[in-house]
Amino acid sequence: MSTNAIGLNTASAERLAKGLNDLLANYQLFYMNARGFHWNIKGANFFELHVKFEELYTDLLTKIDEVAERIQTLGHEPIHSYSEYIKLASIEEKTKVRDGRVAIGHILEDFQALIGKQRSLLALASEAEDEGTAALMSDYIREQEKAVWMYRSYLGE
Rank of each mutant, 00 (worst) to 15 (best):
G19R: 08
A135G: 08
W149E: 14
N40P: 07
Y140C: 13
S12Y: 06
G156D: 05
H50T: 04
E55Q: 14
S12W: 02
L121T: 00
T95C: 00
D110H: 11
N4M: 04
K42W: 07
H38Q: 11
V51N: 11
R142P: 00
E54Q: 14
L121V: 00
K52W: 06
S2P: 04
A13L: 01
K146D: 14
E77F: 12
E14K: 14
E127P: 02
K94E: 11
V102N: 12
K42E: 14
Q112S: 12
Y82K: 03
E93I: 01
W149Q: 10
N33Y: 07
E143F: 07
V97Y: 05
R35G: 04
L155D: 04
L23S: 12
I79R: 02
T3P: 01
I6M: 05
L88K: 13
A103K: 09
A25S: 06
L29D: 10
I86P: 00
H38R: 08
E145K: 06
G100I: 02
L8M: 06
S81M: 02
A11V: 12
G116H: 06
Q118V: 04
S83Y: 06
T3N: 09
Y57G: 12
K94M: 08
D139K: 13
L24D: 02
M32C: 14
T95M: 04
H80V: 03
S153F: 05
T133D: 01
A103L: 09
I107Y: 10
T58R: 11
A34F: 08
K18S: 10
A134L: 00
K146T: 15
S81I: 02
A34V: 10
W149V: 13
G19D: 09
